[in-house]
Computed example of a mutant assay.
Amino acid sequence: MSYDKHILWACTAALLTGWVLAFDNGHCSGIVTRPLCNWTCMQLTLQWPGSFCIGLNNKTICKIPETVRNWTIHGLWPMHTGYCCNCWPVFHSHLQEIEPELTQLWPSLIKGKHFFFFWREEWIKHGTCAGSEETMGSPLLYFQAAVKLRKLFDIDSVLESSGIKTSCDVSYKHDDIRGALTPLFGNNFDLQCVTDREGREAWIQLKIHLFRNQTLGCTKQEQEEVLNTLAWFNSPGHPCPKNTTIFYVPINYENPHEPCN
């Protein structure tokens, strides 16, 4: 289906001014009165591929490309209370300039799912709201921002230099991991874990708290107020417990859903 470019511009203009129009059968209609662009906090969520498949209900759909060896991007998410406009399209051609970097840093870990389809979902869910900020005001700028932040926050090097390495036998205290990351992030991050079938807590995600201008920080109260209204925002996993040790499991390409078995 092709859409009139003037209709798409109208929807996009409405989004950028803080008003969202429903896009229905080629028409913008149904004005939503709640502005979705008035957000101040965002999260860069990084995921560890070694633990990713543990958290999936359907274990057969997981596949970790052998080129993936480091922490990857799950998403760059403005924290807002609503669903963004789905009439601001992203096309594969928009991202060709940075596709090699996205393929390495923001891959899909789902079998048979083309990377672009994953990126398109993230743009529709989150990028269209991020686009109200000038520095992320197009699909290319949004994904470039995420890649730039991922490179800035070189978590792999920080962990290695702190002696925190992947293992199925050695686990780490919550405070040890936080202590290694605090010089890089301050207190502006959360650790998320999943529980494997043996009851081990496996570190799966790192959520980095950012202001709208992509600098570290955002008031904890404001984050919690927004997150409490967003059931879909919460990604798989739970806060890593402080009363037990945490495993940083290795990537198992042949058996990704049970990396330690």
Rank of each mutant, 00 (worst) to 15 (best):
L46E: 12
Q144A: 07
V194M: 02
D169M: 11
Y142I: 06
E254C: 08
V249W: 00
Q223G: 08
P250T: 06
G137Y: 02
K173S: 14
F118P: 00
K111F: 12
Y248Q: 03
L109K: 01
L141E: 05
D156H: 13
P65Q: 06
S93H: 06
W39I: 02
S138Y: 02
D175C: 09
P78F: 05
D196T: 03
G237I: 03
N234R: 13
M42I: 01
C37W: 00
K148D: 11
G163Y: 09
N187V: 06
K207F: 04
W39E: 00
L191Y: 04
F185S: 03
C87F: 04
S108I: 02
L206S: 01
L152W: 10
C129V: 01
K63S: 15
L230R: 11
L44H: 04
H27L: 15
M42H: 03
S162C: 14
R120P: 00
L210A: 07
D176Y: 10
T245D: 15
Y3Q: 12
L149K: 02
F115T: 07
A22G: 08
P241D: 07
E222M: 12
P49T: 03
N213E: 11
V158G: 06
N57Q: 14
I177V: 13
R120N: 12
I246T: 00
I124S: 11
W39F: 15
H27A: 15
K207M: 08
E225Q: 15
A130D: 00
C41R: 02
R34F: 10
N255H: 10
Y248D: 04
L76A: 09
R197G: 07
L140G: 02
A22R: 10
N252W: 09
S138E: 01
D24R: 11
I177D: 03
T244F: 08
L230A: 08
L16K: 09
L36R: 02
Y172W: 10
M136D: 00
A145L: 11
D169K: 12
R150H: 15
I31H: 13
M136C: 08
L210E: 04
L191I: 01
T12Y: 06
